[in-house]
Design a protein around this nucleic acid. Sequence first.
DNA 1: TTATCTGCAAAGCCTTTGCACTTAG
DNA 2: CTAAGTGCAAAGGCTTTGCAGATAA
Lengths: 144, 144
Amino acid sequence: MLFQSEIEILNSYLKKKGLKQGKQRLDVVTVFLETEKHITPEELHDIVKKKHPNIGIATVYRTLKLLSDCGLAREVVFDGRIARYEHNYGHDHHDHLVCVKCGVIKEVIDPEIENLQIMLAKKHGFKITNHRMEIYGTCKKCGS
Amino acid sequence: MLFQSEIEILNSYLKKKGLKQGKQRLDVVTVFLETEKHITPEELHDIVKKKHPNIGIATVYRTLKLLSDCGLAREVVFDGRIARYEHNYGHDHHDHLVCVKCGVIKEVIDPEIENLQIMLAKKHGFKITNHRMEIYGTCKKCGS
DNA sequence: TTATCTGCAAAGCCTTTGCACTTAG
DNA sequence: CTAAGTGCAAAGGCTTTGCAGATAA
């Protein structure tokens, strides 16, 4: 079965919290894990509706919340105010390169920048817990 | 008069667009420029209300929009979904160090990181238009 | 059986908009 | 005088919540 380990993580989280495994919830989780990253709750809802026409968007929101709580999803808010989620189990920390024309999002990582961020924080007496970095511009295809 | 140059920028923008200078709007602008950075529309509204008990929050939103359009304010959305604004005329580009305990926000800049961001984008075929970087952690006062 | 899960609709937040009145130019 | 500004309340998006019926353990 696909996503064996992710499902196990979810299940052990559910057990720990005394929660149950609903059928719809599992479908939302599966679609979420199958799908390209950075999806909005509404987009996810639309996809799941193809299999479960009756599924409510509330279930999608509740499931995404659950996935965030157990560490399988991460909320990323790009410019604007709509939340997008990416599944991050098995993915290392990364930052985002966002094309402002076509909307493509590339995940990138630069160890040197990461290191400098730590130094910068330290210089100001901060102890880092996490950070976010997004670079906006035009991708190669969209030119300047 | 304080904020002479900012007011001039605003006025020339208004003239260019054929807009007028309302009294309330000017008060919102003045308070905004006087105030510590990273204020929410609601906080700004509360302060302005002390002088103009009748001012509507709609005017505050409209004024902030106007300030953003003419480049005097910048919207920054930290974790969560409430917009905060900072006035940025005469301020160089900077990033943010946010204390997750006491909420203090420090503006920082690291030329080396800036440079690496450009290189990183270039490596992926992106031409940068802008970027945002926020580092979350605990400040010196709040310890670890 | 019993607490959780779900869909639905209602409620909540923050933000924007329509309207009638006021005011700047 | 005329178009823009303002306050108010209503409307709009996105997200959360309350509730009653369905379902997992």
